[in-house]
């Protein structure tokens, strides 16, 4: 008994094809059970009968396998670019070359011109094997908008090629190769020490001058920090000190760094920094607590690495500055060599 359920597609022919240019009013396959009808205005290729290679047998008839027209899908193309200056991603769009919407596509990727071939997985990452689930139709690959493959290496040119598969036995060969290149991950970091936003040369030094009891002294200059990175998760600026405060060797005493308001009576003496401002042209560069206080509220600069500025996304032309504040007390030993080496660090989260 033949399984006629395999011939459901024959009903497609009962839906008369039509477009804005033409409409097929009717057709006939003739006695041969199949054939091609065409005119100068239209053509239709129909297959009836044993397209699967199996005879169609009924109780009162039998049909042997006829001529099977196994038409391949068109070989797809692919376009690749890097519009976001990604260091780990590339953007691609599948060109269907007229394949129907149910056609499936697989995409190969290689950083060595397919000496080693990898494949874009259905989740947008790359892998060394191609599974059936990695065949996706046009819409799944993002349609005309395209999609992004991630997990790539920076500063690398990748070759892309695609193939299509429509129905049984109809997978095409790989299409033409398209290439795209990732950029390098970048982290630009600079510090300046100046009263105004200007470039200065090292060595960097800040003299607080005389510290008097109950008098909060501001540094006469700011520490300016530049941060520019395309790291996907942004980056940050960190500070820490060698002594945990202003240390005098001669007096054997350290004005300890503190968190809090130097103006308050509870803090007799202390040292720390206060973020003054942060700007950027893209992304968002922010001052973190406890360095974002006002007045004489400062954050400590201890021997641990403390983050003072942050960016959670790529930041362009980030520029921030902070100042140093200190206060002595009546019990602070006099000395002229109070000093602290404050290190400013930047890192990016790639």
């Amino acid at each position: 008994m033949k399984n006629y359920r395999n011939y459901w597609w024959l009903f497609l022919f009962f839906v008369l094809p039509a477009s804005t240019n033409y409409k097929l009013e009717g057709f006939s396959l003739g006695s041969a059970g199949g054939g091609q009808v065409g005119s100068s205005n239209y053509s239709i290729n129909g297959v009836a009968g044993e397209v699967g290679g199996n005879p169609i047998v009924g109780s009162s008839y039998g049909i042997g396998p006829g001529l099977v027209f196994a038409e391949l899908a068109n070989v797809p193309k692919i376009t690749v670019d890097n519009p976001g200056n990604y260091y780990n991603k590339l953007h691609f769009v599948v060109d269907t070359q007229g394949n129907p919407g149910d056609a499936l596509y697989a995409i190969a990727i290689s950083s060595d011109n397919f000496v080693t071939t990898q494949y874009i997985k259905s989740d947008g990452t790359i892998g060394s094997s191609l599974a059936f689930t990695d065949y996706q139709n046009y819409n799944a690959w993002g349609g005309s908008t395209g999609s992004v493959v991630s997990g790539l290496l920076g500063s690398t040119t990748y070759s892309f090629k695609a193939k299509a598969w429509q129905g049984k036995y109809s997978e095409t060969n790989w299409g033409p190769v398209a290439t795209g290149a990732t950029v390098a991950p970048t982290l630009t970091f600079e510090i300046d020490v100046s009263a105004t936003d200007t470039h200065t040369l090292p060595p960097y030094a800040i003299s607080l001058g005389d510290l008097y009891p109950s008098n909060v002294v501001n540094s006469p200059v700011y520490v300016w920090v530049s941060l520019d990175t395309n790291a996907a998760s942004g980056g940050g600026v960190f500070i820490y000190g060698q002594n945990g405060g202003l240390k005098s060797v001669t007096a054997g005493y350290t004005i300890a760094t503190v968190n809090g308001d130097l103006s308050s009576g509870g803090i007799a003496e202390g040292y720390g920094v206060q973020g003054v401002g942060a700007t950027q042209t893209a992304g968002q560069f922010l001052i973190l607590s406890p360095y974002n206080g006002s007045g004489n509220v400062i954050g400590s600069v201890n021997t641990l690495v403390n983050q003072i500025f942050t960016a959670t996304t790529p930041v362009t032309s980030g520029r921030a500055h902070f100042l140093v504040k200190a206060k002595s007390s009546t019990s602070t030993p006099e000395a002229s060599d109070y000093s602290e080496s404050m290190t400013v660090i930047a890192s990016a989260n790639f």
Binding site: F189, I191, D210, S219, T332, D337
Partner: peptide, 21 residues
């Protein structure tokens, strides 16, 4: 891969003086 910057000029020396009272 993670890039580590090694900068020689990232230190700010802060000095102060506590005068005698």
């Amino acid at each position: 891969y993670v890039g580590i910057p090694i900068a020689a000029k990232d230190t700010v020396v802060v000095t102060g003086k506590v005068s005698a009272l």
